[in-house]
């Protein structure tokens, strides 16, 4: 079923919308959640929350790219759950490594204004659009999806050292780019 048809089901308040979303994007959302959360139970709850949130937010939201929307919801919910878990017990996992690597990339953050968020969004999009496709994919595989370096290397036919080098360079470039744009979070 096409995305537009699924979204139409949401608008019609037809519960088939969730079933169809699940059928089409469960693997994708599960991949995101599993990279962030270590417990199967947490992953399942995260996915249920994501579908529930989709149901509650469409409408008024009308995503044209449902995969992007579901991915964004899943990532945010998974990350919220990760932080909640960390409050109870500091854990490791792949995301802890991902966060360690990102440590120096961005400055400490207070609650940003709408304008600051929009500026950051624009800057990030501009930065990544200027990067070669492979750089974008490697960086986002690692820092958006939380994929393991060895998996990225294997999927792209690169060495792990190559992936790490590319990530390191891109983090530095991103930091400079943000500074140049005066982004302070």
């Amino acid at each position: 079923m096409e995305d537009a048809e699924i979204v139409a089901l949401y608008f019609a308040r037809d519960e088939q919308a969730i079933a169809q979303t699940q059928q089409k994007y469960d693997r994708y959302c599960r991949y995101i959640a599993e990279n962030i959360l270590s417990s199967d139970e947490d992953v399942e709850e995260c996915l249920n929350d994501a579908y529930h949130k989709a149901w509650n937010t469409i409408p008024p939201q009308a995503p044209t790219v449902l995969a992007g929307y579901m991915g964004m919801l899943t990532r945010q919910i998974a990350f919220d759950r990760y932080r909640e878990n960390r409050r109870v017990k500091r854990g490791g996992g792949e995301l802890a490594l991902v966060l360690d690597e990102l440590q120096d990339c961005i400055e400490d953050r207070s609650v940003p204004s709408v304008q600051e968020t929009a500026a950051l969004q624009d800057t990030l999009n501009r930065f990544f659009m200027q990067q070669p496709s492979r750089t974008r994919i490697v960086f986002l595989q690692r820092y958006w999806y939380g994929a393991r370096v060895e998996d990225i290397a294997r999927s792209l036919g690169m060495s792990q050292a190559g992936v790490n080098t590319l990530l390191c360079r891109t983090r530095k470039k991103l930091k400079k780019f943000l500074e140049k744009d005066g982004i302070r979070l």
């Binding site: 945010q76 966060l99 690597e101 990102l102 440590q103 961005i106 953050r109 990030l124 986002l140």
Partner: peptide, 12 residues
Amino acid sequence: RAQAAFEALGLL
């Protein structure tokens, strides 16, 4: 900071 960066990437 790292969490902020991770969250910021969600804006892409």
